[in-house]
Structure formats: structure tokens, C-alpha cells
Design a protein around this nucleic acid. Sequence first.
DNA 1: GTCTTCACG
DNA 2: ACGTACGTGAAGACG
Length: 884
Amino acid sequence: MSHFVLIDGNSVANRAFYALPLLSTSAGLHTNAVLGFTTMLLKVLEEMKPTHIMVAFDAGKVVFRHTEYAEYKGGRSKTPPELSEQFPLIRELLDAFAIKRFELEGYEADDIIGTLTKEADQKEWKTTVITGDKDMLQLVSDHVSVALTRKGVSEIELYTPEEIQEKYGLKPLQIIDLKGLMGDSSDNIPGVPGVGEKTALKLLHEYGSVEEVLANVDRVSGKKLQENLRENVDKANMSKALATILREAPVELDVQQTEFPGYDGLALSDFFKKMEFKSLLSKIKVTQDMSENGEASEATPFAFEIVTEETTEKYTDKLTTPMAVYIEMDGDNYHHAPILGFGIAAEGTTLYVPWDVAKEWKALGSWLADASKEKWVFDGKRDTVGLAWHELPVAGIGFDVYLASYLLNATESNHTLDSIASQYAQVRVRPDEDVYGKGAKRLVPETDVLSEHVAHKAAAIWQSVQVLREQLVENEMGSLLNDLEAPLSMVLALMEKQGIKVNRERLEQMGEELDSKLADLTTQIYELAGGEPFNINSPKQLGEILFDRLALPVLKKTKTGPSTSADVLEKLAPYHPIIDAILTFRQLGKLRSTYIEGLTKEIHTKTSKVHTLYNQATTATGRLSSTDPNLQNIPIRMEEGRKIREAFTPSEDGWYMLAADYSQIELRILAHISGDENLIDAFRKGMDIHTRTAMDVFGVSEEDVTSLMRRQAKAVNFGIVYGISDYGLSQNLNITRKEAADFIERYFDVFAGVKQWMEEIVKEAKQDGYVTTLLHRRRYLPDIRSSNFNLRSFAERTAMNTPIQGTAADVIKLAMIRMQEALVEKGLASRMLLQVHDELVFEVPEDELEIMQKLVPEVMESALALNVPLKVDVNYGRSWYEAK
DNA sequence: GTCTTCACG
DNA sequence: ACGTACGTGAAGACG
């Protein structure tokens, strides 16, 4: 059966360009759009198995649309040179694939595709159009589907007439009417003012088309809407015309010419080599083997050797420098996971050492501990802690591909070795899930499978380092890795292995008190609800009680029903006494399940400590996160919850807990990077920043700042750090949007430097596609130029927030490295235990209290010199609770 | 697995 | 007109 695939070349290239980091070859040629395009093509060929395929491109000025509307596409920003230069490469790519490409002077890709799909439709061919442009949905028919690219180009969403009906309630051709009414800012199609997607859909569901809407304008509800429609009849008609894809372009391509017999693996591999797509090279070999017409290349078995108890001596000389080493463990939590074996690789050597052999091999132990023997690793913290539980020290970690991969793309969450290998190495690593199985079926495989898997991992590390190093240097993040993240990972390893003591009895006692309170509340809630028991923890069942039986008003909805979140319930409290009981029940229930039961489960039976895992490669901003247990969200705001901290105590008798936190670090960083004179002045004078903000925004003297004014000023300051919007502020303060907008305007009048910086950082993000912190940490913002308002707005707020939050993360990370150095240098017994974003927690012997109270703030405040002082508050006590 | 809620900075 | 504050992780419900 035939399958005709048509690709909108410009649209796909654009999406690929903005979705991927700006990669380039060693010669400096940018390749991210080419790579994205290639990935998409390979995926399409594999999944759709087209018999005919072609790619259409825009060419020249769009003649026929321009004549009708001079502004057409006027609002579209110019194609950046980094993308333009990739179009010739994409053409080369298509030639290498032997895929027909087509362009027609004066026409857009849309029109070429529109014309060809019409032809295919008449022939009743199964046809698929691939594009990122929603307009193309108008081409959908019984034979033609449109696949929209998602998440850049890595995923596609297939639309048939049924799916369009389901999503919009429209026939495919009505997509044109939709655009005619709502317009499209990215193509500068005006539409009717005041009509967005919601209104347009409502009108079309009622009247069916732009023409019918206009003919029945008297019956349309809403005076303003009627007026807008009457005054913009021409605009509506013209917009519809602009949105209509031409289906009779003078295309001289016969569909038969697009027949696709399969690609030429040789031509393609040459091209991939030129582009330095190392990972793709191995992929096409496999495909080639499977296709009948490709020249089957002999699959060379991957060569590695298994070291046995008897042969260790023979391999001792192979332990050189540098080498890649990977430690395979059975499970994710390396505080408990049994070690299965080592993979070790360098040029010409790949070894697998089973754990039973490794732990007895003295030379291997010395090699691991020898700082002069450089090791390249994947997640050195994991290796260090995992081996520390077996009293095996590790030193000389020279490169960590996990951290490097994270820095190169912090928003990508999948920094597994298989994905790193596919991007940066030639050898392929199977996903762990494939090797072990998942869920209940998880099983450690036989030695031959396991050893090959681990050997591949070590080889992948070995092969990835050079490319990763080059890309880091190119993105100016070499020092960020070598001087910050890598040393930090070793500090974190110490903290995780050290652990923090938790008093189980104290928690159990609190748990019993909670149990009895919760039992009382449960009875009380059932009675208030009419006597019938129900599951209070189920938002669904609770919603039925509140909104059906008690007929309370629905203030907010979620996707699945009325919202019962705390902010909604607080507003409902005056209506019914059950609400307060539910809020208390939720609060105490959370304490019991997450902080009493959850935390107790994580206490190590031998040490009475909890050993968290700090994830150093998770967040988009550069912060750490903490899991198993999460020690970065232990309650503090409410007194009942705060008591949990009484259970966190020193691990040695007579010692103290000491906590040190940065005061207003994010606003101080904002003062520094924005250079706002007013904000700088406030911090240099050591003022309370929220009071100062209230004084400036409300125009009153310090004595006249009321607590309400200070509270509102504080919310504005938070909003500023988050990338302010009037809507967000209004939600937070429970005020109208107009009032929130006034606050913001007044804030920007007084802090004009902040306003200017915010505008500039967004502009910079639009230009570069990313933002950076003071230490060059980078975050890509693929949506920053999206035509979708929501996506774009979100990216803009992120552009404002990330340099602030990310620089704060840089600062405390630097402080942690310096702090650990200071502890060692001064021979102190005190230990750093926790990091909570702007706070460090230590356990301190009594005779070091004095020096630590001085040393900790000194080190933290001098971590990075800004043009405002950094300020640190220190407290200590017999538990974390008392260190306040 | 996904959704909702809620704990923290 | 659009419809959110920025960044996380854990637990429970539900399909």
C-alpha cells in the first residue's frame, strides 16, 4: 500500500532550530536544525514507512498574498543567520537521503503541499503532511492526515478529521474560518479585533463559517462583539483569504517522481561524518543492515575482556591514566544498591570486572584511590558514595560526563548514559530498562548480557569526553564544570555519606498525637457532611460533598472537576464550618504521611541517620534537588509542622546544629545584575528591603509603612524575582488585576534600573535563544519566540527569573566548596550536612561553636563579590528546630 | 502512569 | 484575547 509523506521544510527546520541547543561542528558550522531535521526524518522513515516522500520549501517573495495584503508576514522577525546558514545543509541532507525536495518561486511550502495533497487525495492515496504549522490542519481529509511536530520535532501528533472534530469541534476546512476570525500574529493575519480562539470557536459552532457569522451578526450575543464584527467585515474576509492555503499552485512535480526506494547508507554516512553526528552514524548502520538494498556491513562484535580472580595480575598494567570507569549497581539508591561490577575503558582496552573480583583486586583499589590516575566517569558522586559504603576511597576524577551533559542542556531531564552515548559517542548503550526490565519484571541479567552492557557504558564515557569538553569550552562553561560542579559533587558526596541523625522516637510520638487528632477530625467532618463516611483525601469525593451536597460555590476548576485546593477552601471557609476542619485535616494528614511515615522509612537502621540523594543534574536553573528523602522541604512555615525539625539532631553527644542562611540573596543578585541604583542603595544601607520597597512604592516615610503595605511590597518583590505579571500578583495578594498592575507600574517607576534590565534580558533571550547566570550557567528558552502567547509569556518570565535564581545557586555552590576547604584546612571536626537552596546546616562540637559562628558567614558572604554586600544569618541549638 | 494537592526555597 | 506567578519532590487517588 502506498503512503505519501510531504514535509513542510521551513516549518520543521524552524522548530528544530529553536528546540535544540545551538550545536556546531569543530569547524564552527551550526548544525542543530540539521540534526533535528535528521532525527525527524529517520523517525518518519522508520515509523511511517513512506513509499513516496518529498520536502517543500518556501522560495522568493510570496507573490499572490502580497498583492492582497502588504503587511502579510510583516510581524515575523527575520530568520537568524545561524539558521539561514543551515538551509543549504538541509538540502544536502535530503540529497544524501535521496529524498525529492521542491520549491517554487513566489510560493510557500504550504501551497506546494496543498496542491500535491489535492492530487494525492483524488488518487485516494494514504497521505501524511508533516509540519509545525496548525494552519495546515485545513488540508486534512479522509485520505490526508496532518502530523504536527511537538516538543520541537522529537514527537509528532497525528490529526485525522475525527481528531480535529474532537479537539475543536470543527470540520478541517473550518480551520480557515477559525484563522479568519481570530487571526494569527505570527503570520500577521489580523483577524477580528477582540476575537480570540474561544470566541471564534463559539461563533463557528453556531454559524459555521465567517460568511455566515457576518450574515447573522445581528443575532450574535454581546454588544461589543457585534460592533467589532460589523466594523471589521473586510478584515475578516481578508484574513480568511490569507489563511487559505492555495491548492492550485503551478506545481510541475508528478507525485510519481517522489517515489522513495530507501536511502543510500554510504552517502548518508559521509554527510553525517561531515556534520559530526557521531551517534547517528551507528543508527544508520543498523537500518542499513535491515534494508534489502543497503550494503549489509558486517556487524563487528564489541570487543571487551572479563577480568577473573585468576587473571587480575595480567590486567594490572592496563590500569593507566586517563581511563573511563563505570560502576554498575543494582538499583538507583546508591546508599543501598549492591555493586554488580566495573566497566573500565581506554583506547584499545575495555574491561568488565565483576564486583567479587573487583573488591579483592588490590591493584584496582590502589588505582581508584590514586589521585594521579585520572578517571573519567558518569556521576562521580554516585561512584564515590557507593564505594565509600564499602570503605573504598576514590580520587582523581578528571571528567564527569553526567555533569557535563547537564550543563550543556539543563532543561533536558534525561541525562542517562544511553542518551549521552547517542549524542556524543559512537558506541551504543542500551537503556537500563531494556537490559533489566522494569517494574515487577526487573531482574539482573546473565553475566554475558550484563558484562557487555557495562563494557559499553565505560566505552561510551571514554568516547564522549572529548566532544563534551569541546562543547563546554565553546559555550564558556569549562570553568563552571571544573571549578564549580565537579568539586561540588565531591562535597555533596561527603554530605550524603555523612547523613543527618533523625530521632525516630520523637517522630513516633508526634505520629501518635497526629493520629488521635486526625481521628477526631475525621468524625467531625463526617458529621458536618451529613453523617456518611467518605474518603476526605479524594478530591473527587470531597468535591461531591462540598459542591453537590452542601451546594458551596465552585470558584475554580481543574481539568477533572471543581478545585478543592487550599486557596479555594480558604475563600469558602465563611460558608460552612466543615471547611476549616478539612483544611486542618489536610495539613495534619500531610505531616503524618510525608514527614512522619515517609521520613521514618528512610532512617538507616544501623546509623539512625537519613542519607539523602542530592540530584545535581535535575533543575533547569542550577539549583540542587533532594530525594529519598527530600530534605529541602521539611516544614517550617507552620508551627505544627516546624516541630518535625525537633527530630533532626546532631549525631554526636554534646554537639549542636548550626544553620546559616543568606538574607534576600535573590534580590541582592537582582540589584547587582540590574545595576539599579535605588535597590543597590537600599542594600548598602542595610535596610529591610520590603519596608524600603513599601516606602518607595507608596511614597511614605519609614514610620508610616503599615504591616499591610509591607506585606504587599514583599509580594511585589517576590513577583519581581519570578518575572512579574499583574495576573500572578493579583492572585497572590487577592486584589484585582488593575490594582496589581498599578503596584507594578509604581515599582518600575522607582526601580527603573530593574525595569530596564528585565526588558533587556528578554530581548537578549530572544536574540540568543538562551539566558545565562553570572558564572555562565546556561538555560535555553525554545519558546521565547513562539507565536503562542502562553508559551512565549512563560519563556519571558523564565528569562527574567533564571539569571537570578541560577546565580543564587552558583553563589551557594561556591560557598559550599570554600566551606568544605576551610573545614579541612583549619582541621575542624564540624560537618556540613544539608543545603536548602539559601541555607547550609552543620553539626558542630561545642568547642567549635565560636569559630563556626564567625567562619560560616565569612565564607558564605565572600563566596562571590557583588556590588552589594551579601548577608548571612547564623543560629544554633540542640536540634534543627532550635537553630532558628 | 497521570492528576491533584501541598511541603520547601 | 490569550490565562500564570519561578524552581522542586512525595503521597494518595484513580483509571
